[in-house]
Design a protein around this nucleic acid. Structure first.
Lengths: 138, 138
DNA sequence: TTCCATGCAAACACTTTGCACCGTG
DNA sequence: CACGGTGCAAAGTGTTTGCATGGAA
């Protein structure tokens, strides 16, 4: 999924192009990993005219279209990130909340094992692995 | 962590033994994987006198003591399970919501890789891997 | 008798929904 | 100019907190 064709992605799937959708997609891009609330805040630095419910509805649409994904990086609100670049999953340090993005190949042994033993297909992009990072291991 | 010494675990850590705590711990045992709400419902089949806030506060205490653990098996409320038996992690089918418990050895290749490459120590018991199960792959 | 634990109710954080209006296609 | 998208406000879900009371130690 590349940057330039998001307009077409919306159009071909019967969705309308609205300024709100563009603002929200750009906000997700800019922020990296952001909760709906943070997305709203970012959008509002460019334009006041976006409502919370629009943010939720739009993030849902964008995820359905494969333009963004969400993961649960805390016990609270989910965070959304762009799927411009390649798929990745996340490590989150329980202690310092640091988020590390990891390439899918690192988890390949697990996914093939789960496929073989359980016929289970892992959704790598949604995966969050909690634990303790180097600095916090002490 | 075995069943019989939970009383001592509480006592030695300075916590009091209350009927509510026993009821809640038993409910978690009985249910397997349960949200705070479900725990409350189970408790109330035995005794009316437990409040929601007590359930939340008690689950927090029990987790701190290592008697229960929680994982996020849905995008909504977390689920708590007993840590009687050995540690495990969960596979959750996005489609049919089926939960599969998996032995830690299956994920060992990943944990050692993350340890080696990122000095990251995985909290296996908290891990939830979302994806698609055999029946829903078709 | 001392505090920790509980109940209760209110507040809080996050998300969803119904409906009237707006604006893209 | 039709219908999908948005704003708004209200309601829904899940969780936390302050404070007075209760009971374990």
């Amino acid at each position: 999924m590349t940057h330039q064709d998001w307009r077409e992605t919306l159009r071909t799937r019967g969705y309308r192009l609205t300024p709100q959708r563009e603002l929200i997609l750009n906000a997700v891009d800019t922020l990296g990993h952001a909760t709906p609330d943070e997305v709203l805040a970012e959008v509002r630095t460019h334009s006041d005219a976006v409502n919370v419910s629009t943010v939720y509805r739009t993030l849902e649409v964008l995820e359905e279209l494969g333009l963004v994904r969400h993961a649960h990086l805390s016990d609270r609100a989910p965070t959304y990130h762009s799927v411009r670049d390649h798929e990745h999953f996340h490590l989150v340090c329980r202690n310092c909340r640091t988020v590390i993005s990891v390439e899918p190949d690192v988890i390949e042994p697990l996914t093939s094992r789960l496929d073989a033993d359980y016929s289970f297909t892992v959704d790598v992009g949604h995966l969050t692995v909690f634990g303790t990072c180097q600095e916090c291991t002490g």
